[in-house]
Design a protein around this nucleic acid. Sequence first.
RNA 1: GCGGAUGUGGCGAAAUUGGCAGACGCGUCGGAUUUAGGAUCCGAUGGGCAACCGUGCAGGUUCAAAUCCUGUCAUCCGUACCA
Length: 809
Amino acid sequence: MDMKTVEQKWQARWEKAKFNAFDPKDTERPKWYVLEMFSYPSGAKLHIGHWYNYGPTDSYARFKRMQGYNVFQPMGFDAFGLPAENYAIKTGVHPKDSTEKNIETMEHQLRAMGAMFDWSAEIKTCGEDYYKWTQWMFLQLYKKGLAYRKEAPVNWCPSCQTVLANEQVVDNCCERCGSEVVRKDLTQWFFKITDYAEELLSGLDTLDWPEKTKAMQRNWIGKSTGCEIEFSCESGDKIRVFTTRCDTVFGVTYVVLAPEHPLARKLTRPEQEKAVEDYIEYASKANEIDRLSTTREKTGVFTGSYCINPVNGKRVPVYLADYVLCSYGTGAVMAVPAHDARDFAFAQKYHLPVEKVIENPDGETVLPYCEDGIVINSVQFDGLRGEEARKAIARHLSHLGKGGTRINYRLRDWLISRQRYWGAPIPVIHCPDCGAVPVPEKDLPVRLPYDVEFRPDGKSPLAKNEQFMHTVCPVCGKPALRDPDTLDTFVCSSWYFLRYVDAHNDKAPFSAEAADRLLPVDTYVGGAEHACMHLLYARFFTKALRDMGYLHFDEPFLRLVHQGVILGPDGNRMSKSKGNVVSPDEYVAAYGSDVFRLYLMFGFSYTEGGPWNDDGIKAIAKFLDRVEKTVLSIAAEKAGKDEPYGPEEKKLDYARNFAIGRITRDMDAFSFNTAVARLMELLNAVTKYDALAVKNTKLLKETMRDFLLLLAPCAPHFCEELWEKTGGKGFIFEQRYPVENKDALTLDETEYAVQVNSRIVCKAMIASDLSDAEVQEFVCALPEVKEKLAGRPVKKCIVVKGRLVNLIG
RNA sequence: GCGGAUGUGGCGAAAUUGGCAGACGCGUCGGAUUUAGGAUCCGAUGGGCAACCGUGCAGGUUCAAAUCCUGUCAUCCGUACCA
């Protein structure tokens, strides 16, 4: 078969019939929203990763379609972002121009894959008709109190000249360029994702997602239940600390503030001023030194001040130390060196007292003892243990008015400002009188100007564009300046799945009807690297929009599947620098897109991936050749009667229905490699039967028809062609996916493994309708069994229906 | 350190969830066809002459373990002083 011609032929026909588009008028069939993570339009062509994500998932979508679902499978481009801007800085090619060109190329390639993408819903996040609504989203979150501005120490990449999200910092280095990240204070916009911490955590339990991904989100959210305790200072200031171990509060021997803590300087006594200033200076540079070492020595400085432990009135010194993080909890901790490894190390170094208040119930108490144990030296709480002690002490603190139970999350608010050009401008105007004023919705979009100087110098490129910057305040009408920053591209991708459902709506981001009809996403497929970013942000958006009344569901992605990573042939991640990049193009040119897709499905365990190896690709081409030959030769046979129906026919019918059942299950489970294996088995069974002298032609033709239908989602062009050639009407994808006939799966007899004392003695065909006792009787009569038993009585007999008999003698 | 996974033939991988380990395919070997090569078709293929031995390693539970439990090693991913 000339695959190139066949592919073009069917792609054109599908296109013409609008066959790939979701049909909103069809209310008969239930909807099924299959979504693959959209791609960033890079300069390179589609790589194996794209193919591996989109090819097999498209087969899944087609399978759902044949099962009778009204499938919606859109595609688009996550088109804003750093790479285009970096490319522009390097080459002078404007991001808009390079991005549009790349989109064109990629779109062309994606279409050539032959996937069932509904291009009528295509979106490009850099288009005005899209980012207008991204800005609208910002405004809604702002209205809802979920967007706010604050001065905050941010991660600054000196090379990219931009702020990075925590998630974009890897090993204290910039995720993109590898430069070391430094700290810088800037006024930034944030989304208050922490307001949803609890629901983002609890909602995970309802999701059909990989456990690993859920675990990562749980860790990222990092809920811990503990206690907040107030230590009063002699100055009158109050230090609030967070602890999960309030059962150790009687063992506090000092209190530590993060160097950036607001009280740090205030509590410093004059005689300590120099030491403290030096330390704060040192700590501010701490990011620049190697913080990765967990064995890094604890450092700190005494402020000269003391505070009072509310439970026992003890006066304890206040230290600054950078092992306490400003951004977690209250930025201050009570130090209990006897029962915390870090406090212990610090106390040793600075010769601070260690007071034991917990005893190991199961042996010697070696300090620092950090497990739960029995409370001692704590007056009325002595003898209590673990959780019980914590509850009692928390209650006590609450009575004292000095604290109480508190839940703390590791999750931080999402920093969304970027001092970058290629993104959606933040729709805010800064007025000297009115302050930060949101742009009225009617004035959206705030257009991203084309002419800008984006060579980095630490300022937002937009800040240098006078025309863009100068405007009037929407409240008072006086001259005012626009916000020069753009939104993190993750903001764009946090709601794209919502836009798809109503991609051309110019009145709203999406209509309520469209959202109700298609959302949430039923099956979402993409890389695992987004576990704590995109997948969390999209959930946050969904919940926030729900609370504003725009959506009527809680979770955007009901089921999530991560495809594995295809590595280079050398087992390493593919990269230009390693020179191990394998391009799909040559294979697609040589074998066609169906063969390439089918090989991706067959050669790897989908969620595992693995090193690229093209040994099997010829085998797939051979398999399809065999299919073609067999299908055409069987189709050419004269239609016959539905007879005979003997053991051979029964066998073929069994193989057919077995395959139907298993393939259906495998496709649903994204177990594509086994689905293809089952197809191969069925073809083998058909070939074998076809070679017989006497055949039931009707059964044979029906089996072949089923086979073609089963194969269709995995080799769409190829099967359409054969469908047409063998007289099929319409598109093969209009046909119903075969459903197994359970009757054909009940056999008169099956092969049992016969064991004596758990060792296999022989195999035996045993009738299916025998009772366990009859099976035992049957196998006991077998000569091999008699020999092994050697006259001993059978003490016990285990029968596993249809599989195995085990005689214990 | 913590969290999560993975470990099965020469190779990619299966295993109905505790029931015949290695489905399906690659590769290899043998045969048919062919002037030859290629292609195609048929057969064999975990190891061992064998009894038997085999799912990283060592134990355990069970009539029965790749699968469950305990310990251990290796690799990968995530995370980084989270109080």
